[in-house]
Simulated assay, not measured.
Amino acid sequence: IRDALENIYRNYEGERSGADWDAFEIYLKRIWFSNGIHHHYSNDKLDPGFSEEYYNMLADATSTTLSDEAKRAIFDPGFDAKKVNKDIEKGLVEGSAVNFYAPDVTTEEAQAYFESLGDPNDRAPISYGLNSRLIKNDNGEVVEEIYKVGGLYGKSLEQVIYWLTKAEAVAENDKQAAAFRNLIKYYETGDLRTWDNYNINWVQDTEGDIDYINGFVEVYNDPLGFTGSYETIVEIKDFEASKRMVKLMENAQWFEDNSPILEAHRKDTVSGILYNVVNVAGEAGDASPSTPIGVNLPNANWIRVQHGSKSVSLGNILEAYDKAGGSGIVGEFAH
C-alpha cells in the first residue's frame, strides 16, 4: 500500500490541491509515521479521508496497481480494522491485521503450537516464536518460517549482517565485538539460544561509549505476545547526564531494601543494574519514526535475574518531547 501511494505522490501530474488531495497527503504521512495503515498506539485503522473513486483516478493517472484485497484494507472499515485485536470473541489472531500468522492458522492452533514447545521446568527458556511466522505445511501441520539468512527476510538480514560485520571490525572493546559476532550468528542461523548468548554479551558490554539495540525485540504487535518486530537504535552516551545517574546505581541496594513491596519479593543482592542517558544517532524499524523515550532490555527474565539488564533514557528524544509539548501544564498548575 505504501509503495502504491508513494508512486502516486511522486508521479501524479494533475491537480495537487483541494480537499481530496490534502486528505491523500495526510493519509500518506500518517502511514509513514505509523509504519502502516493502523495507528501506532490505538491499533485502529486509519481513515483515508478520500474516496475509493478518487484513489482509482490517481492510480489510473500514474499507472499504479494495487490488489483488490489491499484496496479493501484501505477503504472497508470492517476489514483488517485492528492491527492488534484483544477481543477474544473475534479471535486474537483472526481479528488482527498483523502478518505473523498465515491466514489459515487459527488462534487455538497457534497457542497449541507454542505450548507444545515450552518446558515449564526450563530455568533458562528460549523466546519461542520471537523470530518466526507460523504457517501450515503441505500436510496441514503448523510450522515456523524462521527469520534468517536463507529463510524469511533473508535478503534483508544479509544487509544487516553486512553492516554489523563492519561494526565488529571497529568495536570499542572485546565484549562489544563478541556481542556483534553472536548477533551476526543469530541472523545467519535463526537460533534462539544464540540470541540469548548475544543478549548476555550485550548486557555485559558496559564500557563503551556507543551502544545499540538490534533485533526482533518487542512483541507488542503480536496478539499472542510471541513474535518480535524488528527495531534498531544506535546511541552515543551522554557523559554528563550519565554521571548523575551513577549515584542511583551505587545505591540500588538501598532502594531495593526500602521498596514498598513484600519482603519475599526483595532481592538480597542487587546486581547488574546499569542506567545511562544516551543520545540517539539513528533509529529504524519499529523504533522509528514513532520513537521510544527509553529502553530497558533484555526482555528474557532469566537473563535479567542472572546477568542483569540495561536501562537507558534517550536524552535527545526526551528533550525533543519536552520542547514539542509546550508550556500548557506549567501555565495551568504553576504560579
Results as ranks from 00 to 15, higher is better:
Pro292Gly: 07
Asp60Tyr: 00
Glu256Phe: 03
Pro77Trp: 11
Asp3Asn: 14
Lys29Leu: 07
Ala73Pro: 01
Glu263Ile: 13
Gly49Gln: 06
Asp222Glu: 10
Ala171Asp: 09
Ile26Ser: 12
Gly315Lys: 01
Gln176Leu: 05
Arg266Phe: 02
Tyr12Gln: 04
Glu69Arg: 10
Ile200Cys: 08
Tyr113Pro: 03
Ile8Tyr: 10
Glu332Lys: 10
Asp104Thr: 08
Asp322Thr: 10
Met57Asp: 08
Asp209Tyr: 13
Tyr321Lys: 09
Ser116Pro: 11
Ile74Arg: 03
Asp122Val: 06
Gly282His: 11
Asp322Pro: 00
Phe33Ser: 09
Ala281Thr: 07
Glu188Ile: 09
Asp211Thr: 15
Ser127Thr: 06
Ala284Val: 14
Ala81Val: 08
Asp222Arg: 01
Thr107Val: 07
Leu297Lys: 07
Phe114Arg: 05
Thr165Tyr: 09
Asn99Gly: 08
Lys323Asp: 10
Pro292Leu: 08
Ile329Phe: 13
Asn279Phe: 02
Gly95Tyr: 01
Asn251Arg: 14
Ala59Asp: 03
Asp205Tyr: 02
Phe75Pro: 01
Gly14Asn: 09
Phe79Glu: 05
Val295Phe: 04
Glu218Ser: 11
Phe75Arg: 04
Lys155Met: 10
Ala23Val: 00
Ser116His: 07
Asn199Val: 00
Asp191Thr: 03
Arg133Ser: 02
Ile329Arg: 06
Thr62Trp: 04
Leu130Tyr: 06
Ser127Gly: 06
Ala19Thr: 12
Phe239Thr: 14
Leu28Gln: 03
Ala264Leu: 15
Tyr101Gln: 04
Ser51Ala: 03
Phe114Met: 14
Ser17Asn: 14
Arg72Val: 02
Asn251Ile: 11
Asp3Phe: 12
Arg193Leu: 11
Glu15Thr: 12
Glu94Trp: 07
Asn43Val: 03
Phe33Cys: 09
Lys175Phe: 02
Lys155Arg: 14
Glu69Cys: 04
Ile210Glu: 10
Pro298Ile: 00
Phe50Asn: 01
Asn85Trp: 04
Gly315Thr: 03
Tyr212Asn: 06
Leu152Ala: 10
Val84Arg: 03
Tyr128Leu: 06
Ala112Val: 08
Tyr187Ile: 06
Val270Arg: 00
Gly308Trp: 02
Val217Lys: 04
Glu319Leu: 12
Asp119Gly: 07
Val93Ile: 13
Glu25Gln: 11
Ile317Ala: 07
Pro298Val: 02
Ile74Thr: 09
Trp195Lys: 05
Ala179Thr: 02
Asp138Thr: 09
Thr165His: 10
Tyr220Lys: 11
Pro292Arg: 03
Asn56Arg: 13
Gly118Trp: 05
Met245Leu: 15
Tyr186Pro: 00
Asn276Thr: 11
Lys166Asn: 09
Lys243Ile: 01
Trp163Arg: 05
Ile26His: 09
Glu25Asn: 09
Thr189Gln: 13
Leu262Cys: 12
Asp138His: 11
Trp195Leu: 15
Ala19Trp: 05
Ile1Ala: 15
Glu141Lys: 14
Val312Gln: 01
Asp209Ile: 14
Lys71Leu: 12
Val143Thr: 14
Asn182Arg: 15
Ile146Gln: 05
Glu6Ala: 13
Lys243His: 10
Ile210Ala: 13
Tyr9Asn: 14
Asp47Val: 05
Asn201Trp: 04
Ile261Thr: 13
Pro292Gln: 07
Asn131Ser: 13
Ile146Leu: 12
Ser96Phe: 01
Phe114Lys: 02
Leu130Gln: 08
Lys267Thr: 07
Asn139Lys: 15
Arg266Cys: 08
Asp76Ile: 04
His335Arg: 11
Tyr187Pro: 04
Asp222Trp: 00
Thr269Pro: 00
Tyr162Ser: 11
